[in-house]
Design a protein around this nucleic acid. Structure first.
Length: 418
RNA sequence: GCGGCCGUAGUUCAGUUGGUAGAACUCCAGAUUGUGGUUCUGGCUGUCGCGGGUUCGAAUCCCGUCGGUCGCCCCA
């Protein structure tokens, strides 16, 4: 085996890259339609940005090293610190609420597994400066739009929502001390697969009320109710449900949190997010409320593969110029002119035998073959629809400026043959 | 960090009780010097993941290591 990528890193050959681009364009399109603006930051940041401001879990998996200037640097493991820094720096120049998105490539040094590498792309959408839960609804609506643009619907995925504020009050009511709350929440986050006995052991007296909450025998919090109502109006009512089992591991969430899961429950979360009202202040910025989500390409890709959804395919050229060797100068002129006229044009620079050129034209997925042969001397060229093998004839006309135009134009060939 | 399975041509894999490596497809060339999805012919490529050990002899057995994969831990 020669030249493999580093462990956990991926090569994207054209077919895989086409799928990746399909995912990106769905993300971008959903963001654009929902009024989010794209931003980007450095993929390499000072180690300090993460060690001081992120949780221990993230720091333990940082991909970091010392650069040639002896600086401790890290490949970004998440976008939020960079986003927070950027917002803190310039937010006065932007009207609130700020709605920004990005598709960063993120890195973590950890053991690669299914749907999990040392590098991945993550769609991040955040809203800053909006305290109302309508911001969450807006994010979830955007998220659902992105998924639907990829061909996923409410029968494939579900947005599970919970509320840390609700848990806060719940724990308060059951006499959990303020300083113990984070610890209890962490325990709750890890109890997904535990047996009732194990739960009882970990939670003690809390086990029974927690069990009831998990069974859904409790009312939504006010915030969740508002979000559900808004999402219902926007047409995503059947995508969402309350699930108080969702807690999210990250410490900085303060309010509503949510995750997207496949309905079958086979994969880990496809996306996750929530409100982090205190984080920007802690990171040294202004006291601005914020909420956001991230969706990685890895688990999403697994889901699309399971559902047999092709997110993007390679497009071939509009036309492939096939020419006899003697006409190669004319062919090259046509290639140049047609490309300037807006067509995607490919050809084989070596101008081998016709059969070979046509074979290549088909293999590369071109729609039309432009046939430049001896008749070219009489001003004639052929065009052929590769998939149907139907053929027609066109005239080529040299312009004063040296460019060449075809009559009829390639754009009309389909009509001519019809 | 822990455990299961795996690692042979570009790709997918075969390789029988250890005897120094094969198929299919792909790719390249030709049959077919102006018409491509068929067919036929010929050709290329492997330090059998790497290192060590057992043996007259290892792709095959043993140990280690690296990589892949699945699960656990953990988590964006």
């Amino acid at each position: 085996m020669t030249g493999q990528p580093l462990p956990g890193f991926r090569d994207f050959y054209p077919p895989e890259h086409a799928s990746l681009r399909g995912i990106f364009s769905a993300w971008r399109e959903a963001s654009r339609r929902s009024g989010f603006s794209e931003y980007e930051g450095p993929e390499l940041e000072s180690l300090e940005l993460y060690t001081e401001k992120s949780g221990d879990e993230i720091v333990g998996q940082l991909y970091h090293f010392k650069d040639k200037g002896d600086r401790e640097v890290a490949l970004r493991p998440e976008m939020t610190p960079t986003f927070a820094r950027m917002v803190a720096g310039q937010h006065r120049n932007y009207k609130k609420p700020i709605k920004w998105f990005s598709i960063p490539r993120l890195f973590r040094y950890e053991r690669p597994q299914r749907g999990r590498h040392r590098e991945h792309y993550q769609w991040n959408c955040d809203i800053v400066g909006e305290r109302s839960p309508c911001a969450e609804a807006e994010l979830i609506a955007t998220l659902c739009l992105g998924l639907s643009l990829l061909g996923l619907g409410s029968k494939d995925v579900v947005v599970k929502m919970s509320d840390r504020g609700w848990w806060d009050r719940f724990l308060e009511k059951h006499g959990v001390k303020e300083e113990n709350k984070p610890g209890v929440l962490r325990v709750l986050d890890r109890l997904e697969g535990a047996t009732p006995e194990q739960r009882k052991e970990k939670l003690g007296a809390l086990a029974k009320p927690v069990e009831e909450a998990w069974e859904g025998n409790v009312h939504d919090s006010e915030a969740l109710g508002e979000i559900k109502s808004a999402l219902g109006k926007m047409g995503y009512g059947n995508w969402c449900e309350t699930d108080f089992r969702i807690v999210r591991g990250l410490a900085y969430y303060t309010g509503v949190v949510f995750e997207v899961h496949d309905r079958a429950g086979k994969l880990r979360a496809v996306a996750g997010g929530g409100r982090y009202d205190d984080l920007l202040k802690k990171l040294g910025g202004e006291d601005l409320p914020a909420t956001g989500f991230g969706m990685g390409d890895a688990v999403l890709g697994e889901l699309l593969r399971d559902k047999k959804i092709e997110s993007g395919k390679q497009e071939g050229a509009d036309l492939f110029v096939v020419a006899e060797g003697a006409e190669k100068d004319l062919a090259l002129s046509m290639v140049g002119s047609l490309r300037r006229a807006g067509f995607a044009v490919d050809y084989e620079p070596g101008f081998p035998k016709w059969g070979k050129q046509l074979e290549l034209a088909e293999a590369k997925g071109a729609r039309w073959a432009l046939l430049v042969g001896r008749e070219a001397k009489d001003g004639k060229v052929g065009f052929k629809e590769i998939s149907t093998r139907r053929q027609g004839e066109a005239r080529w006309i040299g312009q004063k400026d040296g460019s060449i135009c075809l009559e009829p134009s390639p754009g009309d060939w389909a009509k001519v043959l019809a």
